[in-house]
C-alpha cells in the first residue's frame, strides 16, 4: 500500500531526534487520533540551518515527517512556508487516500514551528504564517 519511497523514509527516517539548541518548536496532532508530530528548527538569519522531528504515528506519519524535514532543510523561512502537503505527498511518490491527513499534519507542524520561532523573536506570527490548525482538523475520530 505504500510506495518504495514511503517505506524508505519510514525505515530510514532522516533528521529524527531532538534539537537541543532549537529556536522554533511546533507540535501538532493528538494521541486520540494516533498522530503527533513535533518539529524542531534551528533558524539563523531567516534560514533553517537544522531541523529534527519526533513522531508518534503510523508509517505514513513517520515518512511524511522525514520527507518534510528534508524539503525545508537549508531553506529560508519564506520558502519553507510555501511547502504544501501536496508537495510532501508528491515527493513521497504518493500516499494512500486515508493517509493524506498525515501530510497535512506535517505541513502544519512546520508552520507551527516557524510561528513559534517568530513568537520567540517578539514578532506576531499570524500575518506571516496565517491561522494555524494545531489539530488533525480533517479527522473524524471525535
Amino acid at each position: 500500500m505504500y510506495s518504495a519511497k514511503v517505506m524508505d523514509h519510514f525505515a530510514n527516517p532522516r533528521n529524527v531526534g531532538e534539537l537541543a539548541d532549537a529556536n522554533g518548536i511546533g507540535e501538532v496532532g493528538n494521541e486520540k487520533c494516533g498522530d503527533i508530530m513535533k518539529i524542531y528548527l534551528k533558524v539563523e538569519n531567516e534560514v533553517i540551518t537544522d531541523v529534527k522531528f519526533m513522531t508518534f504515528g503510523c508509517g505514513a506519519a513517520i515518512a511524511t515527517s522525514s520527507m518534510a524535514t528534508e524539503l525545508i532543510k537549508g531553506k529560508s523561512l519564506s520558502e519553507a512556508l510555501t511547502l504544501t502537503n501536496q508537495a510532501v505527498v508528491e515527493a513521497l511518490d504518493g500516499l494512500p487516500p486515508v493517509k493524506i491527513h498525515c501530510s497535512v499534519l506535517a505541513e502544519q507542524a512546520i508552520k507551527t514551528a516557524i510561528a513559534d520561532y517568530y513568537t520567540r523573536q517578539g514578532i506576531d506570527p499570524t500575518p506571516i504564517v496565517g491561522e494555524l490548525k494545531s489539530d488533525c482538523h480533517d479527522c473524524d475520530c471525535h
Binding site: 517505506m7 487520533c33 494516533g34 504515528g57 503510523c58 508509517g59 513517520i62 486515508v98 475520530c141
Partner: peptide, 30 residues
C-alpha cells in the same frame, strides 16, 4: 508511546506477520 502500524511494518520487514488494533490498520481513524 508507539502506534501499532509502524510496529507491524517493522515486524513485516523482519519476517513476522501480526496485527494491531490501531486505527491505521483498520482503514478508519478510530
Amino acid at each position: 508511546g508507539i502506534e501499532g502500524e509502524g510496529l507491524l511494518l517493522w515486524l513485516d520487514m523482519s519476517g513476522i506477520a501480526a496485527s494491531s488494533g490501531s486505527a491505521c490498520t483498520s482503514g478508519s481513524l478510530d
